[in-house]
Design a protein around this nucleic acid. Structure first.
Lengths: 233, 233
DNA sequence: CGTTTGCTTGAAGGTTCTCAACAGAGGTGG
DNA sequence: CCACCTCTGTTGAGAACCTTCAAGCAAACG
């Protein structure tokens, strides 16, 4: 059952136009579908892959969300990023064929699998695929720039507000509400991502609530005014 | 004079085997050389490009070093990375054709210029070039994972030691000494990169010196024992 | 129904930042 | 040639911020 795959249908996937299939014609999409497979859905806290695993494939998040982590030399885990639907995972494996971090499902989640051995030749054959691949790679780098600005030298209050605004922006790009969403990760994962203690994150969310900028009910976040939240930074 | 270009000779460049030319045969290298140009060398603190500039090209550091920065929404500058010879710069522009950060020479420095419009078709034609391009992209992602582990949730003393070890490692990969090198950036750029105040960086370097782990003379760093420095973390 | 997990809140303590003064190097101009 | 200024780096003292330790609560789970 582990390796059972399902039929892939990029042409009626709602994510297709933020994904690799964007800009391809019907025939090209068919070729792409032949190399893509689906693994069975992952359960919460199940690993998609682990640091130092051999990498046969890249993955695109189809549903749910993921967290990627690295272990440093001392064995301390750092949360590098969260991944929402449509995002490409595993690019760091292009260097040596090894995954340089682990990726873990935060909730029930599914991915499309792109075998590296077939992706590269196919992208040489289909120019639109190659350019879309480079486009997506570029967005990942651009996102990392944004993340650097988010995490850099800011007090905890700003990091927390920026974190919520980043999620808001990403959900909005996916067609979801930009002011109302559920956090798919616990406080200590947010803390690890923002390089803060979990108590500080909890307190900062509390302060944003006190100020009337957001409403918080456990994992549920409601941003009362995007503008006020932005200007609070 | 601004746009004067010089002849490019990948085949006798000492960086070639960490660069795009790696694994290409003589004829393929010739094709690559036809699309690469050199700009005149940049002077210290001169910009290679600025945030939101139109991106026509990617760049590879040929000599000297660079610093890349982002401005956040509030106009605060963050140092995202330092770039040493052999490293590819500008990948974040693959998304929208705009540079998402600025890149500034830290000293007299030169680059090879790779026009995007010609790089993509050429890499379709030369499979070895495409795979080497993906390989380099992969190393950039891998490096970002390492950076996350460097910067994440550590006290200032560890960040500083890790920073020196990272530079040591990178210089060593370039064939330079891993224990003796000159910092090409002032303390406040290190501080901005590590998310610390410049005074804290200065004090931490002082403490590493007091402990006998390193010698510091302005920009000159000598690591007395790599092992001791590592185990001090 | 007890245990575990996630979250909140309080108090104390430590780390880092800010403000400030100072010193040396390098460049400029009189 | 020297005075002057700027830039860079060091060092100190106090304040602010964040972390750690601790206790308590609610919801989820077996």
């Amino acid at each position: 059952m582990e390796s059972k795959t399902h039929q892939v249908e990029c042409h009626n996937c709602r994510l297709a136009n933020g994904c690799l299939a964007k800009g391809l014609d019907g025939d090209e999409i068919k070729q792409l579908e032949t190399i893509i497979s689906h693994k069975r859905p992952l359960k919460p806290s199940e690993f998609l892959y682990r640091q130092d695993d051999q990498a046969q494939s890249l993955f695109v998040v189809k549903s749910g969300s993921f967290r990627s982590t690295v272990l440093d030399a001392e064995g301390i885990e750092h949360t590098v990023d969260f991944h929402l639907p449509g995002e490409l995972i595993g690019l760091e494996a292009l260097q040596k064929g090894l995954f340089r971090g682990s990726v873990e499902a935060l909730e029930t989640a599914s991915v499309c699998e792109l075998p590296l051995a077939q992706l590269s030749p196919l992208s040489s054959k289909i120019p639109g695929l190659q350019s879309q691949l480079l486009h997506i790679i570029g967005s990942q780098f651009a996102a990392q720039h944004d993340r650097a600005a988010l995490l850099g030298n800011h007090p905890a209050s700003e990091k927390t507000a920026r974190f919520l605004l980043m999620l808001s922006h990403r959900y909005s790009n996916l067609g979801y509400s930009s002011t109302e969403f559920n956090l798919s990760m616990p406080r200590y994962h947010i803390a690890s991502f923002l390089c803060l203690s979990l108590e500080t994150v909890s307190r900062q969310l509390g302060r944003l609530k006190e100020k009337g900028l957001i409403s918080v009910q456990k994992r549920g976040i409601h941003i009362n005014s995007l503008e006020s939240l932005k200007s609070s930074i």
